[in-house]
């Protein structure tokens, strides 16, 4: 009896120790960035439109937004429809489906620099698009596709079979059932996959560095070369060694990701209530 209590206490200590370490590491990163960045952060630095090149984040914010939005416009419909096909229509025994599934799994684990290399060789060189936002978009669109497909598939799998049966028993066809019952029931998981991809896109450097380039100007059109916030951070750290601006940019990046997560939670809650 006593032995069991002791074991119990020991396990608690181990668990709290583990939690303590992870939380400390996370918070020290956060605090380090905040302490170093806050003094360099100004309204000017984030929002100014006429600051010298690299001294306002406005062009990078614009580039990031454009790339995230347009990439999602390509990948989300494609990814969701692929997931619907794989989970609802395709026979799990088919050889083609097995090949597609294992490719998706492999692709989702590939380092982003390889997508970058592909984008560079194919879009930038073969298609002659040069370093441009469009080359970047088409590269990262492929990169996040497997993430969306896998997460959506998981969400669809989690929808109980009994919902589908109930719908069929009322005379509904497959497509109607998917549209009216399955997708709404899976919406939280699908949203989570989109948020995950947005996070991935905002944090992406390697793939964009090689395809969208590093120009720090406000993009004029999709043919412009332009840097996202993360690419900007990389270039000023490596090429200019300016840690102050890098830290300040990091704060903006973190704030962006945090607000996106809050927004996602808010949307998920709203959808659940309805």
């Amino acid at each position: 009896m006593n032995n069991r209590k002791l074991k119990n206490t020991l396990s608690y200590i181990k668990i709290y120790f583990g939690i303590g370490i992870s939380v400390t590491i996370l918070f020290s990163i956060l605090i380090l960035v905040l302490i170093n960045g806050i003094q360099n952060l100004s309204f000017e630095f984030v929002f100014s439109l006429d600051a010298p090149r690299g001294f306002s984040l406005m062009p990078m914010l614009a580039t990031t937004t454009v790339i995230v939005v347009l990439t999602l416009l390509i990948s989300v419909p494609l990814g969701i429809s692929s997931a619907i096909y794989l989970n609802e229509y395709a026979s799990s025994k088919s050889k083609l489906v097995k090949i597609v599934r294992s490719s998706i799994e492999t692709l989702s684990g590939i380092p982003s620099i390889i997508y970058g290399l592909f984008g560079f060789l194919f879009y930038v060189i073969v298609l002659g698009w040069s370093w441009s936002i469009r080359a970047g978009i088409f590269t990262v669109a492929i990169m996040i596709l497997p993430i969306i497909i896998r997460a959506t598939e998981e969400a669809l799998k989690a929808v109980p079979m009994s919902y589908r049966m109930g719908s069929y028993a009322l005379g509904a066809g497959k497509f109607y059932t998917i549209r009216k019952v399955v997708l709404p029931a899976a919406i939280n998981g699908i949203l989570a996959s989109i948020i995950l991809s947005i996070g991935r896109l905002i944090g992406e450097t390697a793939a964009l560095l090689l395809t969208a380039g590093t120009l720090l100007d406000m993009p004029v059109n999709l043919q412009s070369s332009a840097a996202t916030l993360s690419v900007f951070m990389y270039t000023i750290t490596i090429e200019q060694g300016d840690m102050n601006r890098a830290y300040a940019t990091a704060i903006v990046l973190m704030a962006l990701v945090l607000s996106l997560n809050l927004l996602a939670n808010f949307i998920a809650k709203r959808l659940k209530r309805d």
């Binding site: 109930g166 009322l170 005379g171 509904a172 019952v181 029931a185």
Partner: peptide
Amino acid sequence: VSELRKRVGMVFQKPNPFPMTIYDNITYG
């Protein structure tokens, strides 16, 4: 088969209301 299932309805072993409002459940069919 939709025509048939409109004439022959089915209730299952475990209650399986759709994850929507009561009103929408009834009007679904």
